[in-house]
C-alpha cells in the first residue's frame, strides 16, 4: 500500500499505520514524499513493514513496537526514541539522540549519527556503521551500542550497564567509562549484532569494548568536596 505524504496528511498516514486490521493481509507499506516531516511512523504497534522513501524529521519511528521500518534517507533528531521492539533501519545519516531511552528492538544506521546517540538507552541494540558524535551512550542503562567508525568526546559518560563496542577511535571517554576485556559471551553478543547489520563477523577482532567502571554507583566520601 502506497501512502503519499504530499496527498495525505501526516496524521492520516500515521493513523492508518497505527490501526492495522490484524486479519487483513496488508502488511507492507510505502511512504513517499516524507519531506522532513516530524513523527512519521511514530507509535506503530503491529508487525508490519514500512519503507519511507526520502528524508524524515524528528522522532521518526518513535515508540515503535514490532514494526520493521526502513528509511531510504536521513533522519532527524530522536529516531526510534523510546522504541520497545521491532527494527528501524536508516540507510542514510541520523541526527542527535538516535535511539534515545529505547527499551528494546534494533536500530541500524548505515551512515553517521551526530551527538548523544543512545542517550539513556534502556535495552535497545544500536548498530552504527559510521561514526557517532559527542556524548554518545550518555547514562546508557542497558543494551548494546556498536560503532563501526569513531566516537566523539565523552563517550559513555555516566554509563550504567550498557555495552559499547567500537572499531574506530574514541576522541575521549566520559566519566566512569572504561575499556573492558571482551570475553566469549561478549563476543557472541557482538557477533549476533554484526550479523543483524550484515557486517562480516571476522571484524570482531577489530572491536574494543567499553562499559561502566561502576565508581559512580555509590557515594564516595573522598569526593565530598566536589559536590
Amino acid at each position: 500500500m502506497n501512502l503519499n505524504l504530499k496527498k495525505e496528511s501526516l496524521r492520516k498516514v500515521n493513523e492508518t499505520l497505527q490501526s492495522i486490521d490484524r486479519k487483513s493481509n496488508k502488511k507492507i507499506f510505502k511512504i513517499s514524499n516524507p519531506d522532513g516531516n516530524h513523527a512519521i511512523c511514530a507509535g506503530l504497534k503491529d508487525e508490519i513493514e514500512v519503507t519511507i522513501d526520502g528524508h524524515t524529521g524528528y522522532y521518526c519511528a518513535g515508540m515503535n513496537m514490532n514494526a520493521n521500518i526502513i528509511v531510504n534517507g536521513n533522519v532527524g533528531t530522536g529516531v526510534a526514541e523510546n522504541m520497545m521492539s521491532g527494527t528501524v533501519h536508516v540507510k542514510g545519516n541520523a541526527s542527535q539522540s538516535a535511539g534515545a531511552t529505547a527499551h528494546g528492538g534494533t536500530l541500524i544506521i548505515d551512515g553517521d549519527t551526530s551527538s548523544r546517540c543512545g542517550i539513556s538507552m534502556k535495552g535497545i541494540d544500536i548498530i552504527v556503521k559510521g561514526s557517532v558524535g559527542h556524548m554518545s551512550a550518555f547514562m546508557a542503562q542497558s543494551g548494546n551500542l556498536v560503532i563501526c567508525g569513531d566516537a566523539g568526546d565523552a563517550l559513555g559518560d555516566s554509563i550504567y550497564e550498557a555495552n559499547i563496542f567500537i572499531k574506530g577511535n574514541v576522541k575521549s571517554l566520559g566519566a566512569d567509562c572504561e575499556e573492558k576485556k571482551m570475553n566469549k559471551k561478549d563476543q557472541n553478543i557482538l557477533r549476533s549484532l554484526l550479523k543483524k547489520a550484515s557486517i562480516n563477523e571476522s571484524e570482531i577482532k577489530n572491536f574494543k569494548m567499553y562499559g561502566s567502571a561502576r565508581k559512580l554507583y555509590n557515594f564516595n566520601i573522598d569526593n565530598v568536596s566536589e559536590y
Binding site: 519531506d35 522532513g36 526520502g54 528524508h55 524529521g57 534517507g73 545519516n93
Partner: peptide, 20 residues
C-alpha cells in the same frame, strides 16, 4: 530542520550533513 529545504530543487540528491 530539513523540512525547510524539502522544496528546493534536487535536494534529495544533495550532499546533506549536520555541521559539527
Amino acid at each position: 530542520e530539513f523540512q525547510a529545504m524539502a522544496h528546493l530543487p534536487n535536494v534529495n540528491s544533495a550532499k546533506i550533513f549536520e555541521p559539527e
